[in-house]
Design a protein around this nucleic acid. Structure first.
Lengths: 344, 344
DNA sequence: ATGAAAGCGCTAACAC
DNA sequence: GTGTTAGCGCTTTCAT
């Protein structure tokens, strides 16, 4: 066995799938023509083009996007990083993003940090390695290393959820202001003893921002702003626990400002089981404006956050940048709306 | 050394990011050594290895996964295709998948078909182009072209949600049987006039499978099995509409079997607003076992489907295959559980 | 334990 | 409008 093998220079485990070259041979053209026929059909002759398309079907060609991506050093991936998939809020933002990006032929690369900034950094590294076209991440808080990594990156970066000092683009709402808004509403209704109840607020720091707005408003009115922080997951059940704790720890409480609608609705349903009248015995308010809270009786007073719209808006801004359209503002406030129900 | 050009023959738009070669130069080794130090550290000398790691940090190297993927013709991507992101059920399955895959270093590539089989086919093509390691798709129904494409693919394919004749691996539950189970429960409770209410069942064909189980059971008992199909989205609101339609079109109905918990809960809350007693005036049953239904009063009778567990189980089976472990069974029934509440 | 060379499948750059 | 050539950045094969 010295040398006369049937063309055996060096073997490679290439996946035996048809390539551009196979299509080219079948169509009797060169592979670059096939490439053009597929990517910029207007730049090849109609007859040739048809011949290529036929050949594609004939050999069952599926483009190798990895190779294309390496050649162009860009992929149609959009990296999307969220802290949790258990929270409807992120799900709906993702939905808005996904719809908008998918319609434009971009593929979402979804990462979940579980509220861990180290994990975020790791995900960012991985995603950069895939030559993503842009990156969307939830929130403005990142590890220093992650921030450095991103600041050296030259593609669009979108930070979504809250507003503030952003790396690049920013779409969100003012959570501090939202917390104030609800506190103001409760004060206007003449509740004076108001407890704020949140869950896992070190991770969900936006709930903490809302609390801080709430506290400012109460303190400005000369009131205390007690806080209960639950460490429980599973929001409806946590709401139940939250109400119990308020009744026990703050028997004089007249209103509860919950960090979100799940907690608030859980508490509201629990109040009914306990025979408490809402809002007569205890008023309950939430945040998010989920359908759930709008279907219970009494209807939940809450703040509507435009979650899907936020995702769409964020995606649109990113797409504008990818299309090289002028970006007038880097920051977009999607706002919120107080929904006054019967629970306050 | 004949041509001493500082600048070269042809330019390429390479993304100016440090590559293996840059690291190699900084470390005074060849690039293949850097590659090995990164991928199979045990195969390089300890001193060299450290020198490489230092160089990586120094030049700020981020591996180009696209290039790696092309060279190995495999990526650590798992394609996941679902028909909707608006439905908690898929979200929770995704969550189970994501957790399990991410823990093993696989990245999920998420696609949404919007219940369109053509769209599914297109997504599959795209995903195959990314050299995914495996594909997970919701359901057993695919277009013929999609089926053909997949049958020529040599990587693991997992069909999740319902059980049946699968392409490769299959994890799910028996929806027909689940429908029968609930119908049986209602019959045992002596409800004789039972209406099934679903929404958009052409897309959500598993609801239709449950209806068919329901119908079989009722017909076996000599009863009619009337069906109302809502075309409305937004499940709680649709449940409201569903109850209204039942009251109008089937005034004698004593029980309603809803296709899911959102509809059922929407109806239950609406019944309370209408002053109807549940289950005395009308019994209500759902499907899924969402927390929501378990927190209303009366607690919803429903069927618990193990959604996250289904995702985890599916991922585990796929991982076994990727690890070349023997796969004993291709089909896994995750089962379901009747939860008897007070709504029936 | 380390390196040189070939090549994964595609597209940008430069002809004609 | 089409073809030729040279990479994209990495890993595999083979050699030392």
């Amino acid at each position: 066995m010295s040398n006369q093998e049937t063309s055996r220079t060096r073997h490679r485990r290439g996946s035996a799938k048809p390539t551009l070259k196979d299509v080219a041979e079948a169509a009797g053209v060169s592979s670059i023509t096939v490439s053009r026929a597929l990517n910029t059909p207007e730049r090849v002759n109609g007859v040739t083009r048809q011949r290529v398309f036929d050949a594609v079907d004939k050999v069952g060609y599926v483009p190798n996007l990895v190779a294309g991506s390496l050649a162009t050093s860009s992929s149609r991936f959009i990296a999307v990083i969220v802290p949790s998939l258990s929270n409807v809020v992120f799900i709906e933002v993702i939905k808005g993003l996904q719809e908008t990006f998918e319609a434009r032929g971009y593929q979402m690369l979804l990462g979940n940090t579980d509220y861990d900034l180290q994990r975020e950094h790791q995900l960012v590294r991985t995603f950069l390695g895939w030559s993503c076209s842009a990156l969307v991440t939830a929130g403005l808080r990142h590890s220093e290393a992650c921030r450095t990594l991103l600041s050296h990156w030259d593609k669009p970066i979108m930070e979504v959820m809250e507003l503030g000092e952003a790396l690049d683009l920013n779409v969100g709402l003012d959570h501090h202001e939202a917390g104030r808004c609800m506190a103001r509403h409760l004060l206007e209704r003449d509740y004076r003893s108001i407890v704020y109840v949140g869950a896992c607020m070190d991770g969900d720091y936006r709930a903490d921002m809302r609390f801080s707005g709430h506290r400012h408003e109460l303190e400005a009115a000369g009131l205390e702003a007690p806080l209960i922080e639950l460490d429980q997951l599973g929001s409806l059940a946590a709401g139940t626990a939250g109400l119990d704790r308020v009744l026990k720890e703050f028997p004089d409480a007249r209103a509860i400002h919950f960090a979100n609608d799940d907690l608030a609705t859980g508490a509201l349903l629990h109040a009914q089981r306990l025979g408490l009248r809402v809002p007569k015995d205890i008023a309950i308010a939430g945040f998010n404006g989920l359908p759930l809270g709008q279907h219970v009786t009494p209807r939940l007073t809450t703040i509507q956050s435009p979650r899907e719209a936020m995702g769409r808006r964020a995606a649109e801004q990113v797409l504008r940048r990818l299309d090289h359209q002028p970006v007038t503002r880097r920051q977009h406030d999607v706002g919120f709306k107080l929904l006054v129900g019967q629970s306050t």
